Computed example of a mutant assay.
Amino acid sequence: MDRRASQFRLDNPVLAFRFTATLVDRSGEAVERLATPSSLATWFELNGFGTPPRELTEGDLLRARELREVIHRIGTATATGGELDPADVERLNEFSVGGAGHLTLEHGRATWCLPPRRWVDSLFGVIADDAVRVLGGQSRTRVRVCARPECHGLFVDTSRAGTRRWCSMNYCGNRQKKQNLRASAR
């Protein structure tokens, strides 16, 4: 396993929600995992998009954080039955149409094809498209916010009963259960 992966939560099957997990502990002392342009490049690589064809800039980083927060706000509103901010929806749609990425089949595997001159915009478009697909598709009624107070991560509840509480049982579920046990022992 790539040692760089330990700095990110990569266990969410929804790409857009995995991207929102680059800001950790939203309700406490937030930890920014996209701290530098190189950390953004690392996230891209670890998620199967390859190495950027150019050095990423602070501007790329700011746009990445903007996209992340737009997705998180829309996802949270979707999960809680809140109103979607029209400005967030417009911005998500702008990111979505700004890309030119597509999947190709190479050696029996799906591979992202991103034009080198528009690589970053296309990648943001791929992430925004994924968010639109989940938040505006059949899965939207199953979008949830993790019940662990420090997390607030988004996930799609695929449980039969539709009662899943944690973005990941192995991560947040176990941590919350341990925290509850310690609190009850006191």
Rank of each mutant, 00 (worst) to 15 (best):
D85T: 11
E55K: 05
T141R: 05
L46Y: 05
A41V: 13
R140M: 03
E106Q: 15
R117L: 02
D2I: 00
L56S: 09
H72E: 13
L15Y: 10
S96K: 06
R186M: 02
W43C: 01
S38P: 07
I71W: 13
R18D: 15
A5K: 04
L105D: 08
T78R: 06
F17K: 12
L181W: 04
S168R: 00
H102Q: 10
W166N: 12
P37I: 00
A5G: 02
G162T: 02
E55L: 14
R65I: 12
D2A: 06
R68F: 03
T163M: 00
T163E: 03
L181F: 13
V132D: 04
G75W: 03
E55N: 04
F124L: 07
G99P: 05
N174K: 10
Q179R: 07
F155E: 06
P149N: 09
A79S: 04
E150H: 05
A41I: 07
A128S: 12
T76I: 04
W166L: 03
C146N: 01
T76P: 04
G48V: 08
R164M: 03
R9A: 15
T51F: 04
C151S: 01
V126F: 01
A87H: 14
V70I: 03
S122Q: 12
S39I: 15
H107T: 13
C113R: 13
D60R: 06
A131E: 07
R68Y: 15
T158L: 08
P86A: 15
T22D: 09
E69T: 00
G59Q: 10
G28K: 09
N12Y: 08
Q7K: 11
